[in-house]
Structures are given as C-alpha cells and as structure tokens.
Nucleic acid binder design. Sequence first.
DNA 1: CATGAATGAGTGTTCATTCAT
DNA 2: TATGAATGAACACTCATTCAT
Lengths: 206, 206, 206, 206
Amino acid sequence: MAKKSKKKSKPDSYYKILDALEALIEEKNFSEIKWNDLAAKADVNAGLIYRYYKDLKNVLFVLFEKTTLDQVQEVQFGLRGIEGAFNKLRKFIWIQLHDTVAHRARGRMQLLEARAHKSYFDSPAYEASRKYVSLLRGIIEEGIETGEIRDDLPVNDIIRIILGAIEHTMMPALLFNLEAGSDNEIDRQADTICKLLFPGLKKSPL
Amino acid sequence: MAKKSKKKSKPDSYYKILDALEALIEEKNFSEIKWNDLAAKADVNAGLIYRYYKDLKNVLFVLFEKTTLDQVQEVQFGLRGIEGAFNKLRKFIWIQLHDTVAHRARGRMQLLEARAHKSYFDSPAYEASRKYVSLLRGIIEEGIETGEIRDDLPVNDIIRIILGAIEHTMMPALLFNLEAGSDNEIDRQADTICKLLFPGLKKSPL
Amino acid sequence: MAKKSKKKSKPDSYYKILDALEALIEEKNFSEIKWNDLAAKADVNAGLIYRYYKDLKNVLFVLFEKTTLDQVQEVQFGLRGIEGAFNKLRKFIWIQLHDTVAHRARGRMQLLEARAHKSYFDSPAYEASRKYVSLLRGIIEEGIETGEIRDDLPVNDIIRIILGAIEHTMMPALLFNLEAGSDNEIDRQADTICKLLFPGLKKSPL
Amino acid sequence: MAKKSKKKSKPDSYYKILDALEALIEEKNFSEIKWNDLAAKADVNAGLIYRYYKDLKNVLFVLFEKTTLDQVQEVQFGLRGIEGAFNKLRKFIWIQLHDTVAHRARGRMQLLEARAHKSYFDSPAYEASRKYVSLLRGIIEEGIETGEIRDDLPVNDIIRIILGAIEHTMMPALLFNLEAGSDNEIDRQADTICKLLFPGLKKSPL
DNA sequence: CATGAATGAGTGTTCATTCAT
DNA sequence: TATGAATGAACACTCATTCAT
C-alpha cells in the first residue's frame, strides 16, 4: 500500500541513488566520486540522476539531511527516561560514539566532507545538523537551569568543546578503516570524555 | 655569498608556488583549486608546477609540512620559560587559537583538507603533524609524572579530547570568513577551554 | 530484422573510427596520427574514441586484426580448387602482392607500424597474423608430405624466407606512394619470386 | 693530438649523444625516446643537443648513416679474397646475419625505425643504405657477367628477394630480446637461405 | 521512467624549445 | 661549450550533461 499510495512517493531509483552514495562514501573521498560511479553503484542510468538531483553535492546534502534526521530521532529516543543533565550528557556522548562506528558514512559526511563545501551552510542538511546540535544545547541549558551545570561559561563555547572532544575521539575510526574498536574500547573512550569534562562542567558548591 | 653558496637551494618559483597555494587555500576549497589558478597566482608557468610537485596534492602536503613545522617551532618557543603542566597547557591552547586566526590557511589544511586524502597519512606532512601533537603529549606526560595531572586516563584519549576541543572552537573562524573574532573573544574562548578541561585533568588530592 | 536483432552490435561510430584510421594510415605514419585527426576523419567526437578503444594503439590493433582476418579468408578462398604445393604457393605469392597494392593500409600496418610496438605481440592482432602465417605453413608442410618439397630444411626458416622475399618486394609500393606498379609489373615480380625460390624448394629427384 | 688537432673535430658531447641514442634504441622504440631520455643517457644537457642536431630524427639518421657506413666497410673487408659470385653471396648473407646479432641497434634502425619516416629517404642515411645495397648488386651483376647467375631476371627484383629473405630471418632476434640464437643456429639459418636461393639463381646449363 | 549514445568544454600532462648565465 | 630554469603550445584524457528513443 505504501508503495502504491496516491501521494506519489519518489520512484525506487531515487532511493537507490541515495543508498549508493552512502555506500560509496564509506569507500572513498566524496571528491573522488563521479556520476558514473554513483550510477553504477545504484544500478541506474547516469542521466537519470539528473531528474532527481541537480548535482552531486545535492545528493550528498540530501543524504546528509536524511541520515542526520534519523540520528536526531535516535538520540531523542535514547535520551528518554533519563534524568539529570549529566546522565543525559553521558548518554549523548555514548550514543554518538557508538553510532559513528555503526554508520561510518554519516560520520564521514559530518566530519570530513560537508564542511568543506560552502554551499553546505545554506542547505537543509545544515539545518538538520543544527537540530542535532540543539539536542545537546537543550541538555546543557537544562543543566544550567537546574543548577547542575555551571552558569559562568558561554553555552556555545561549551557545546563546541563537547562536540570537538567527541568528534576528535571518533576521528581515527573514520579515517582508517579500523575494524572499529571493540565495544569495550568505545565505552572506555566515552568514559574518559565524561571523566575529563564533567568536573569542569559541574557547578561548584558554594 | 649566501646567494652563491654551494648548497643549491630550490629556485624561486618553487617557493612562489607554495605561497600561491597558501593564498588560494584561504580563498577557497582545495578541491576547487586548479593548476591554472595556482600558476596564475604564483605567476609561473603551469607546467613548472608539475616539474616541482608532480601533482596538486603534493603541493598541499609540502606546504602543510612546512607550515606545521613552523608551528612546532612557534609553540616550542612560546612554551619556553613556563613552569607547570597546567600553565604550559594554557599557553598551548592560547597559542593555537590565536595562531589559527593568524594563519587561516594552515588551519584549513589541518582541519578541512588534508584529512580527506588517504595519501596524506603517508606524507611527510602527517609526520610533521605528529611532531606537533607530540608537543602536547610531552606536556601531558610531564604533568602526570609531576603528579599534577591524573594518571588514570589513557594519554591518547586525553590528547584527542583536548585537540578536539581546540579545533572545534576554532572551526567557525575557519569556515566563515569571520573577520576573526577580536583578541578578547579568543582569550575568552581559551579561558573557557581551560576552565572546562582543567578540573577534570587535575589529580584529585587524596 | 538484421538491424534490430538481439545481439547488440557495436554502434556505428565504432566502425567509423576504424575506417577513419584505415584511411589515415594510407596518408601518414601512425605515430603522426593524433586523436583529433582520427576524430575529425571519423566525424566523431574525440572523447568517444576513448570510450571504445582506450588508446590509439588499440584502434590500430583492432583494425589490424580485422583486416588480417579478412585477408586470411581471401587467401583461403583464393587457394580453393588449386592442386599441388607449388601451384598453391604461386597463388599465395600472387595474391599477397596484388592484395598489398589494393589495401595499402593493411600492408603498412603489417610491415611498418605494428611490429614497432611491443604490445602488438600480446594483442589479438598478432594472433590473427599468426593465423595468416599458418596458411603458408600448411602449404609447405603439405608439400613436404607429398614429396614435392624438400624435407631437409626447417619449415620455420623456409617460411621466413618466403615471407621476407614477398614483403621486401612489396616494400617500395608501400613506402612511396607509387601509383602501384601496373598489374603486369606485379605479375612479373611474383614470377621472379617463384623462379628464384621454387628450384631451391623442390625435392631433388634421386 | 687527434683531440687537439686544428681540424676542429666535434666536441665529445656530439659523440656521446650518438652513443646514447644507440644504447636507447636497443632498449626501446624510437618514437618513445624523448629529448630528456637522450640527454640523460648521454649525460649532457638537453638544450645542448640542439646545437648539434636539429631534431631527434636527425640524430637517428646521423647515427644510422655512421653505422651503415661501418657496415659497408666490414662487408667489403669480409668479401676480400673470395672468388666466385656464390661464395661471395654466401659470405654476404653470413656476415649480415651475424652482424645483426652483434649490433642490434643498427638492425632495429634499418628494419623497424628508419623506413617509417618519409624524411629518411632524403637523408644521407638513405644514401649510405644504398651504398650497402650496391655491394650486393655488385655481386649479382658480377655473377651474371661471369655466367654463374642467370640473366633472365631483373636484378632489382633479385636484390629485394635476397634482402627480404635475410631481413625476415633476422627479425625475431630484433623484435624479441632473444639472447640471440647461438652461432650454430645462425650458421644454420644462413645455410638454409643459401640452399633455398642458390638453385634458383644458378644459370641452368644449356 | 529509463537508457545508450554522443558531445564539448575543461583539465592535467608532456615536451620540444629558448634563454640568461 | 654547457647548463638549469622556464615557457607555451599541443595533446591526451575526463566527465558532467544532453538527447533521441
């Protein structure tokens, strides 16, 4: 039903192309990916891609938006039922690290590819990305309000520091095709981030 | 005499090409830079670039290596006469932030361009980069030895967190051609990083 | 129906390119022929040649193979109904001489161009060439079996001598754009070859 | 004395270039040889080659002329003291086969490279080559006069057949870097040529 | 909706050639 | 006589893009 429903859903090829790009991004540099590579991987005629996407960056951003929105949902879901800013923060960090290992393409787009293109910052992909960041902002602001987190530092700075710590920790797994550190190792890395950052975040008791 | 010395130094053009790339990188994405752009900027024949560098990525890596080695020296110099791991760390962070603003090309190469290329990790540029990181490692290890810094966390993880925090803090200045935040703002950001990270790094008193 | 048959035949351009090369080879040295020359002659986009043939030598070898296989058929046809090794040999020589005049491109490829390229000897063109030589070998071996041709000389040496005699006789016509000697002259040359070689080939009566 | 004599002999470099080309021709196709290859092999500045030679073909032809004139002398010397057209012819064939093995570059130039260039036929190299052929013509004509060789065939045709037989017999050694057949094998090939050609050349007794 | 064929503008690369020293 | 540096024009090759079917 979903398939044949009136609301004309995009044809199969549209999605095959997105999937193909995701697969390719795991293999190589975006700038090395050509129309023909993508067409071949998607098992679709190269000319057809034009019907759906203006250019390759466009495919990239659409894919990026889609995966990032997925990610937002996952995180939202993961945070449910958790109380306390620091517990949420720990979960956030933990999800992000594990997630990157599970969806390398997404990570590569976020950390390595998208930023390099100016047009990214005007794309819906960037919007999605901001939505993701706002999840983190929510946690921080809540923590400040509840008095758990110190209030003498600019929230934006805090966010960048946390994200930077997370991103840089994930970097090796994205760059090298490390068969992604074991779960244990990832847990340890998440733990280290928390141990390092939480003391500085805590509102010091009067 | 210096000019006529035996050690045949590279011809002028060799360096003009490096300078030209540095200028271009500040303007645009590396992947958008073409041989002809570079040749024009360097006021040099395009074929000549080929003679010296074989391909564009090579120019990138040579430039990256050179600037990174410069940076190593600057940091080494900046750290002289400073006592205590935390004081050194604060200086390190401070230099790095200010430095990035002063040499945007260098920052863009490090954070946005180089990593995207597999061959980077086999290049001398990567070696230089490791040398830079080892400066930070030195500070951390020294601090652990003197008992200033806690010894229950993997040094590599610590390093990544610190670098990530720094990098992500610099990111906006690199991405958008912000007329680079005022000195005051940078000082504030450096301060925030320290305030956030230092408590977690300190060896807690028994 | 032939046109619309299932077996997807190569597009027209594929063959136009071959024809164009054949024409060009009659005019000039292969090493002087450029992609653009060929494209212009074939009235085809230069990039298209690349799609079908990868490089110019490849076009050369494909053309060579094709024409040589044609030649094999012509010779096989021409030899039909002829009895006796020497009669066949005479016919073989005669065909070859006349043929070279009629298809100068083919001769130039065989005698002047192909051999100069190492890769030729790994190409299907070389295989075709061997097929052609084996026609001559068949005649010789048959003659030896029937006792017409002496059996005290290595067949390979005999073949080379005969081919060499033929080739060198054709050479002037190929090198200079002689409006190819009259039929009479060619007949005379064929005759000379036979007169010179046959006595030495005959098995001497006890 | 020779070196510093008044008759200004060409400078060393002039000859080094020739030697270098000879060495290169043994290694690869002439059309693959570049100015820089030659300069490197000769251990001479590329620009210098211009002083002596107009272009690469020019070097080729000068070298060709030189080696061919050497060859003429060798053959003339080798024929001395031999009586009878057939004995001379046998010697001629024998020298030529052995010689090719000893000087592969020369053979490659004659059989594979020079002919492909139109300008060859206007060069002194071609003149030298004709001188060489005239040695063979001399033998044939002498044989006709003395009544040893039949007089009913065009001398030019005869010459081509003999040369063709010789050339084609040498071909494999030139094409493939066969460690040149043993002396025995070459002797056998020379013998085969004689056995095949001589009967047809002999004037038949009334 | 989908494709094979074709195109042309752009890009990297090569290399003979010149020139100041 | 000899060289290193530099050049420019030609050339091969790539690839996004269009179009008839």
